[in-house]
Design a protein around this nucleic acid. Structure first.
Lengths: 195, 195, 195, 195
DNA sequence: CATGAATGAGGATTCATTCAT
DNA sequence: GATGAATGAATCCTCATTCAT
């Protein structure tokens, strides 16, 4: 009552977005129907179209939010860190943490890849992704890699390893995202490093 | 090429399987309808059910075929190769070659992951996958890695990198699967190696 | 008759329910397809699922309505009638009248027996039936039957005779429901009566 | 080996007929598919059409067999019985016994009523039924009923009561077909009787 | 803001049946 | 005698979406 905003902060639009994120993440875009989103968000199916033009657009907004969050996490994790390798460790940790900790929006970002999405938002989704990956481009550029290593190969290998964790990682298991980030980077580090 | 009829007509079952593989690979399982498979295979939708109990079972059979092919390729590529690192190079090359060369069955294997498939074949699909990955388990076990590297982390990182190529790799581009395999393994090799 | 529109258009839900009732009654549940209901109700097949979860549930609602009507008829017919045998005459007449006069809902009640319906509504359908038959239980309890006659046997024999009329009764023929009710009850009356 | 006929007596045709009878009885005609019959009979679906022109014809043959059996049972039960009421007791007992004892063919006879069957065999089915019911016509004609009772009403009431047992009778319950037959006839007897 | 009603297209699957072998 | 392959039509149902209110 004191703060009506807090209670209402879960406004229609927001509730829908959260429900969509959770379901896209859990079931995938295709198997998530507008009806399911409407059930989860406590809103009638028709109402969703008051806030979003289409299911496709809904996915786009979920992804936008996901990349935004990720970018923020990575930025925060690397602020005031100057050592290049340490920056990478932290960026990866933030990436993995986001994926498993705050699944709602971020998982969708890794699961629903634009190459499979036929809707009109495809290009916008690719742009969002590129923008986010640019963070890693920059961090990796700063690494003192030896000349034989292509920065792009390095980056793609690293991102691939991390994305793949969705397939096998058990959050209740023995590894923490922190450890995994260290390991994955280390696996690539010494050989690639010029030191 | 010599006799297109042989390849295309073959038996009904085979034609369906091939069409399903191609479409599952291109569009994904969910967006591939039985109707589409029927169009592509030149068979009426109902006929598919004479050969396969369900769409789910059809996916399972496609995956089985895919893993079978992959296993064969990897086995052939490593036969009579004794150097452990060379064995890994070749296995990875075979894996990537399979993924991009002979997409029909093998791509489905990497794209349609069991963690998202709710059908009754899920467990069978997991079993197939494990059996295939066991090939890599064995090859990686033989590597003279230094003590600090976990074989399992090594394997998952490598497989993740390779799977991720589906997202960014352009077969018409500058890299060949052969080069990519070398690079990816090398990226992990020296640091991890005990030599 | 005065205003066909009112009767026919009413609300969507109602139109569907009526069409379903008519068709279930005429063709039976199995041979009545959603398509046929949609044609008869002037509504598209998909729309039916806005109002009813499934065909099974539609049957349940038709039966509920049928039993409700029947109960009302029987109750009205026996109100203020105190002679026990007269009460039974009237109840049976109401039952038969309902079956042939107002076929739409009530016939389904007698034709679609729960013992053959495999759907999830089966139990609910049994409950509805029992509740209705309880009316007869009470009416028959009040009869001064001689000790050798089991009330339950009496009731089942009577209901069976009436249900069976669906097989042979020709509404255009020589008997009226009124006469049939008298006859059927009389056939059982004197022998069973203690008088 | 001694008597090949016995072993082969379950010839294709016969096996199909039995399976169809069982399934028509248990699930009803509509819900019994040719595939199910083929599974139960251990014969391929296509093969059924070697022996029977259609599903409709299959039903007709099952009914024919059912009525044949019933007629035989009723005839046997009444042979050498001269007392008219005793004849009826026995006929009813045979009828009920047939229904519950030897369900396979006979139940179909009571469950699948021609008024609902739209196929071309309808008329033939009606003829079979009439022929069987004629047995009861004759037995009932011989009863010394008092003048006020219509023989036809008597018969239909009795047959209705017996048919209805399918709805409520529990073969594992307290009543035997023998008892039920006595009761049902007695319920009608004394009042109708001229004695 | 949000809903209730409605739709058209398409979803997977089952059906009775045919026919060459 | 019996089958394997194939079909066309129909099955129930779900989908994303629209729109008047």
């Amino acid at each position: 009552m004191i703060n009506k905003k807090v209670a209402t902060s879960s406004t229609g639009r927001e509730r829908i977005l959260k429900s969509a994120a959770r379901l896209f993440g859990e079931l995938g875009y295709d198997r998530t129907s507008i009806r399911k989103i409407s059930l989860e968000s406590g809103m009638k199916a028709g109402s969703i179209y008051y806030f979003f033009k289409s299911k496709d657009e809904l996915l786009l907004e979920v992804q936008a939010r996901g990349f935004e969050l990720m970018s923020k996490y990575v930025a925060e994790a690397t602020t005031n860190v100057t050592d290049p390798w340490e920056r990478l460790y932290r960026a990866c940790e933030a990436h993995l943490n986001g994926m498993f900790d705050n699944r709602t929006f971020i998982e969708v970002t890794v699961r629903e890849l634009p190459d499979r999405h036929p809707g009109p938002s495809r290009r916008a989704m690719i742009r969002l992704r590129s923008k986010y990956e640019a963070l890693f481009v920059r961090i990796i550029e700063d690494l003192p890699l030896n000349g034989s290593v292509d920065h792009s190969d390095f980056r793609l290998t690293l991102l691939g390893s991390m994305a793949w964790t969705l397939v096998w990682y058990d959050p209740a298991g023995r590894h923490t995202p922190h450890e995994m980030a260290r390991k994955m980077v280390d696996l690539l580090r010494y050989q690639s490093s010029a030191e």
